[in-house]
Simulated assay, not measured.
Amino acid sequence: MRQGTGGTAAIRVRAAGIALLAAHLLVVGWLTLRPLDVPWMTAANFEPLAGIRADLALGPLEAAHRIGEGLLLLAPLGVLLPMAGGRLAVSPWASLARTVAAGALISLGIELLQTGVPGQVVDVDSLLLNTVGVTLAHLAVVPVGRARLRRRAGVPARTPRLPDESSQGTTPSISRVRVAP
């Protein structure tokens, strides 16, 4: 069920989600895709977790700062994507899978676009951290928010619908087809 069927408040929530999503993506694009004037650049990192290990070697404060940046950059997508989608009664696992896949694809797109931007370096650990950030934000906020909105709107949680006899109808028959002897 879409939020739009619940009234004007639900429509406003969805519209706010779309507007905030667009604003967040513009800020992320500006932060990650603007050319940087740097005297030297590190090589691209295609080895998973190598950058995180290097960050941890710098000390706990610097590691927390760098890893936190990676986790927080796309984390709002974990909330904004379901909010903009507008579904209240949906499987939690399907919602999580859709949101994480979309977050990972957006992160991958950013990393691919960075290959052509001067001063920006591709890092596979950014992709991993961004995706984990989206996942954690979704798990922390969306199930509780949906439950609260469902209670407020009086919408039951998603339950599997079993077919009953009234929805089945009659079996169609063709008059010239007969049962074989």
Rank of each mutant, 00 (worst) to 15 (best):
G116T: 11
V142A: 12
V13D: 14
S173F: 03
A153K: 02
L162A: 15
N45H: 12
G17H: 13
V142H: 03
P156N: 08
R158H: 12
A84M: 05
A89E: 12
M41E: 07
P48H: 04
A64K: 03
W40E: 05
L72K: 01
A89S: 14
S175V: 11
A54T: 06
P35R: 08
P156H: 02
P160A: 04
F46H: 11
S91Q: 03
A97V: 10
V132D: 06
L80M: 08
L71Y: 08
E69P: 00
H65Y: 10
R87M: 04
D125P: 04
D123M: 04
V142I: 10
I67A: 01
V142Y: 02
R98C: 05
L112H: 10
M1F: 01
T99A: 01
G103L: 03
L58G: 11
G29A: 08
G133L: 00
T99H: 00
L77H: 10
Q168D: 05
Q168C: 02
D164N: 06
G70F: 04
E165T: 08
P160H: 00
G86F: 11
R178H: 03
T42I: 06
L21A: 04
G119K: 08
F46C: 06
T131N: 12
G51Y: 07
P172Y: 00
G145N: 06
L112S: 03
A9T: 15
L36K: 15
G70K: 05
V134Y: 07
R151K: 07
L96I: 03
I52D: 06
V117F: 09
S167C: 03
R146Q: 15
G109K: 11
G59P: 00
G7L: 02
G6W: 13
V132E: 05
A153V: 14
V132R: 00
R152F: 00
A153F: 09
T99C: 02
A43E: 10
W30H: 13
S107N: 05
G6P: 01
L73S: 06
A44W: 14
E62Y: 02
A57F: 12
G7N: 10
S107A: 15
Q3G: 14
V13T: 13
L36Q: 14
D37P: 01
W40H: 05
L81W: 09
G154T: 01
P60A: 11
Q168I: 12
P118E: 03
Q114S: 04
D37K: 08
G70L: 07
R53P: 00
L33N: 07
G68Y: 09
A147Q: 13
S175R: 11
R161A: 15
Q114D: 02
